[in-house]
Design a binder for these strands. Structure first.
Lengths: 144, 144
DNA sequence: TTGAATTATTTAATATATTAAGTAATATTA
DNA sequence: TAATATTACTTAATATATTAAATAATTCAA
């Protein structure tokens, strides 16, 4: 009887487990700021940009466009971001953080870095760097 | 002004990207069998067991109990699994695949392995093995 | 230059994620 | 052993994921 590879030999399963394990370290902190995982991804992507169109924002925050629509609505209602339409292409929606949104970002950053350093301590700084390089390279080959 | 580490230096972000990139290879095949990602995780965990209690099933398939409740309901309605209560502890629900569920599993396995081999070809078999070992070891340290 | 593609986003419908609260069965303890 | 705590699961409420379809703006081609 044919059987599937063991779960600890399955790349997607182990990636899911690692994602969940690592995010669970950050989640309580994000919730204390009233942010979901996805809302924080949107905010952090926007923080390094002036304005960004929705499609690019969706890609970079790894959120599908239909989900992003709702997330933007909620963040906009919370006053963390604003939308405007691109004058040169009225189909596009340009999104940017508000002052309040940038302030929240500034508050989260040090807490996030604190947790990241705890993660580094747990894994080992050199090993984490090495792993991350391999992971980025894997992603290049998977998406490229 | 404090800024967060770049996204390609963020472990959780790169893990999410890798998870999505790799799963996207399998998703169309699973959909062609009428299965969601989560339903397939449940089925593959059950396939190697006779019966399994819900909590263990949730843990191993990386699904939270409230989500599992609905997923089990849908799979049960589709005739792929059955529930019974543990005689020695009436709180527990024991879940097992039906004949139909095992048949679906048997049909998916070769298609899944086919895709996995294509993935191996894309990444390189030795590199994938090496990466997977490091990933499993990372998970041990994160969850342990 | 108009009608047919294409693009960017939203809407809709169903499924899952997350947190909190509820329920029933079992285990503990005073 | 009755009151309390714990365990296993479900329900509820809100948020996100996924696929398909709809809408509006733009581009392309005859």
């Amino acid at each position: 009887m044919a059987r599937l590879r063991d779960i600890n030999r399955s790349l997607p399963m182990q990636l899911l487990l690692a994602r969940e394990s690592s995010m669970s370290l950050f989640r309580p902190m994000l919730r204390s700021f009233g942010l979901t995982d996805q809302q924080w991804r949107v905010i952090r992507v926007l923080a390094s940009r002036d304005k960004l169109e929705a499609y690019e924002l969706a890609t970079q925050s790894i959120i599908l466009p239909p989900s992003l629509t709702r997330i933007l609505k909620n963040l906009e209602e919370g006053g963390l971001l604003s939308r405007s339409s691109d004058p040169s292409d009225q189909r596009k929606v340009l999104i940017s953080l508000t002052r309040k949104g940038r302030k929240v970002y500034q508050q989260v950053v040090p807490e996030s870095e604190k947790i990241y350093r705890a993660l580094e301590a747990k894994i080992g700084s050199a090993e984490l760097d090495d792993f991350l390089s391999k992971l980025v390279s894997l992603n290049d080959r998977l998406t490229g």
